[in-house]
Computed example of a mutant assay.
Amino acid sequence: MKTDNKETITVETTINAPVEKVWKYWTEPEHITKWSFASDDWHAPLAENDLRVGGTFHTRMEAKDGSFGFDFGGVYSEIKINELISYTLGDGRKVIVTFISQERDTKVIEVFEAEATHSNEQQKAGWQALLDKFKEYSELSHENENLKGEF
């Protein structure tokens, strides 16, 4: 994807959970705070999400030792439940997240416009680390929900 001649980067993963659960884990603030950080020495103490076209989202990401933190947020431009989320970040870059149902699994593909501060490799590694954390959280949560449902 190229938008306005800006270079884009793609990250993706396949999650062993149905798309309805993956969507829930991606969009609900109580879940976002459990996965929206790239490594275990970081956390996301705050997440707000108004999931509608024109709605905003905001996640605070911080190092657990308090040495650094930043806000990640934007405005939604397109929402197709269980299929697609498109938004514009605070700095004007565009992001598209696609959710593809594959029987019992869900493929998540994020395409985002690169920024000029970090190399494309650094950006791809950072966004992939977040997506990997999301996969880990989603699969564990889905498994735990299934176990609870069996009793």
Rank of each mutant, 00 (worst) to 15 (best):
T3S: 07
T3C: 10
D4M: 06
D4V: 06
N5R: 11
K6H: 15
E7C: 07
I9P: 01
V11L: 04
E12T: 07
E12G: 04
T13W: 01
T14L: 03
I15R: 00
I15H: 02
I15G: 01
A17H: 02
A17S: 08
A17R: 01
V19Q: 01
K21A: 07
Y25V: 01
W26Y: 09
W26G: 01
E28L: 06
E28P: 00
H31C: 11
I32R: 00
T33E: 07
K34D: 07
K34T: 07
S36V: 11
F37M: 03
A38E: 11
A38Q: 08
S39M: 12
H43M: 15
A44M: 03
P45Y: 08
L46V: 13
A47L: 01
A47C: 04
E48F: 02
E48D: 11
E48Y: 02
D50A: 02
R52V: 12
V53K: 08
V53D: 07
G55E: 00
G55A: 02
G55R: 00
T56E: 08
F57Q: 04
H58C: 07
E62D: 11
D65W: 08
D65F: 09
G66T: 09
S67W: 10
S67H: 10
F68T: 10
D71L: 02
F72M: 15
G73S: 07
V75T: 15
E78C: 06
I79P: 05
I81Q: 10
E83I: 02
S86N: 13
T88D: 11
G90F: 05
D91T: 14
D91Y: 11
R93F: 03
R93Q: 10
K94I: 11
I96R: 08
T98H: 10
S101Y: 09
Q102L: 07
R104F: 14
T106M: 03
T106N: 04
K107G: 03
F112N: 02
E115T: 12
E115G: 12
E115Q: 08
A116H: 13
H118R: 13
S119M: 02
N120A: 10
N120E: 14
E121V: 14
Q123A: 00
A125M: 12
Q128F: 05
K133F: 09
K135D: 08
E136I: 12
E136W: 13
E136K: 11
E136L: 13
Y137N: 03
S138T: 15
S141K: 12
H142Q: 14
